[in-house]
Design a protein around this nucleic acid. Structure first.
Lengths: 336, 336
DNA sequence: CTGTTAGCGCCTTCAA
DNA sequence: TTGAAGGCGCTAACAG
């Protein structure tokens, strides 16, 4: 105690006056140990504060099961990512599996490095929100038995399962909703982390509504909130500003709302955002959104991962999770 | 390849035609290997997709360093917790350390079980947001060399470092701010996860303002949003309702705002919330908050943990992180 | 029911 | 500069 060394099974065995294997049996709840010895071992375990060394156990068992999974997110501080993590944690904890997580910030190099770090720790599975366009570097992992599931975007050059919101359909429905309110000048605002399928859906929505797209109204790949706010302001300084905005991600939605606020346009310009957020119903007007169920997406991804880890075969597939348009006011404003 | 077995150093050694130890040297960047052999080994590593087994390495080295830390949060989906996790990840990744995380949901039993699960994996350090009042169960961990740092609340019956917002001072300043606007009937709303120091600060603030506390205005320990919303509604059905609210946590703040909205009181009842949130400036009126810097708290906790892990001695201490009152409108409303 | 032996993948010590 | 032997903590496979 206090010597900085952790107790091992040997210490427990010595204290309880039994052999190593007997301690192992008790610790692992194996049958065939007399109640008397079980008691002695249990007591020694408690007195010493012994916890079995999972690393050594995994090494010896050799079944490559570390009872851990890795989760690579764009940014845990983002509500969508945080909710996915929470859902994955819940599924994992229920199975006695721990979750490693890291934030990639849209950096392909970081994604790769962190995936390698998890791999070195022999995580049994990996869930990732693809940042790069190419996940082929995971090929050897998949081949050697690591289960991989992608979330939020489909992977590039890697044949694994993916759980994604119906991005294109959701974005298209948002645009059609705005078009139905009479808008024809509908801008698209997206940042680095917004799936490109939402831009595709925006275009499809315009076409479905018979609107000719204006490239000047499409602003994608915004690096941060400052740029996004300036981009919105710039849109309204043109000769033919938009009368409605479609924002491709919750962070962009909030930034756009802030810009409209500053310009005094929050009741004059319509807006539909992709992704719900906590106070969308408290703003004036309420913010109309295409809601995606992050919790469900995370749970589905985790369930799928565990299914693969426990031998579920079959070809990889894309699992779409539906979105719902929630009208709250901002998306129902008419053009001036 | 594809046989489900991961390559080991032996496989690499065989392929490169060298001994095990030579591979080990190359993989660990040890000096004293000829360039020719380094090249052969590197090539074999790439061809096989070899990653060293961290578990085995840790076991052999025996220095109890797994280059992993654990983080026990109340709920990762909560913005404060998520931001703390993000900050901890950043500090950890920069040092090549991975982060395990789990959500405790205020359940003392879960806290203990998850701490044990992390301990069994030999995490070098543990950061936790205490849920229970008693963390003495971690005593043997601390004694055997695991660094522990608490965040957001001070630990009970355990002598370790803690990084906390200046809860009492911040809450008191919120109450004094409301009193300065003329309020004398100021309600307190808190949930399970709100640190009790904020209630103490509320009381101190009342006293400083010369206001006699009314127990009917204190509602603590709210289990969920539904209860919180009903509690607020109930407050305004009494003969002597409050004219101002102090909400002890961001989740409670949003719920209270929703209740005020429903009652049509959002411009009539003053409110100051503990903890800033993304859209506080976009609501009408803007929401006055006592902001705490979650990012800084997380970074500080992680820095402290790594300092302890690398031998920093000295008695454990409480590290306060200041709060800032941000006036935005809701806290400056006068009593009717 | 209980104990002994061997070895998981890797690194340390020592020898060549 | 390179390699061979031994053991970290634990558990399979086999004795007793």
């Amino acid at each position: 105690m206090g010597d900085g060394r952790r107790p091992t099974m040997r210490d427990v065995a010595a204290r309880a006056g039994v052999s190593l294997k007997t301690v192992s049996r008790v610790v692992n709840d194996e049958a065939g140990v007399s109640p008397a010895l079980i008691g002695r071992v249990r007591q020694a375990v408690d007195e010493l504060g012994f916890h079995p060394n999972v690393g050594a156990r995994v090494l010896r068992r050799g079944d490559t099961r570390t009872a851990s999974i890795g989760l690579l997110l764009d940014d845990v501080a983002d509500p969508f990512c945080a909710t996915v993590l929470r859902a994955v944690q819940d599924v994992a904890v229920a199975r006695g599996v721990v979750v490693l997580s890291a934030s990639v910030d849209g950096d392909a190099g970081r994604e790769r490095a962190l995936a390698a770090a998890f791999s070195a720790r022999r995580t049994d599975g990996l869930i990732l929100v693809p940042a790069a366009d190419d996940q082929s570097y995971l090929g050897s992992e998949v081949a050697s038995g690591t289960a991989v599931v992608c979330v939020g975007r489909v992977p590039g050059r890697l044949d694994v399962d993916a759980v994604v919101a119906t991005d294109a359909a959701g974005a298209a429905s948002a645009v059609r909703h705005l078009a139905a309110a009479g808008h024809t000048r509908i801008a698209f605002l997206g940042d680095r982390a917004a799936p490109s399928a939402r831009l595709a859906g925006y275009r499809a929505g315009l076409e479905a509504a018979g609107i000719v797209p204006d490239p000047a109204l499409v602003v994608g790949g915004l690096p941060d909130a400052g740029h996004a706010e300036r981009a919105v302001s710039a849109l309204f300084r043109t000769a033919t500003p938009p009368t409605a905005l479609f924002t491709a991600r919750d962070a962009v939605t909030v930034t756009a709302l802030r810009a409209l606020h500053r310009l005094g346009l929050q009741r004059l310009v319509a807006l539909v955002g992709f992704g719900d957020f906590d106070t969308a119903d408290l703003l004036s007007p309420g913010v109309t959104v295409v809601a995606q169920d992050a919790r469900r997406i995370g749970t589905r991804a985790a369930d799928l991962l565990f299914a693969r880890m426990t031998g579920h075969a079959g070809p990889p597939a894309i699992y779409p999770v539906p979105t719902v348009l929630v009208p709250r006011g901002s998306g129902e404003l008419s053009p001036r």
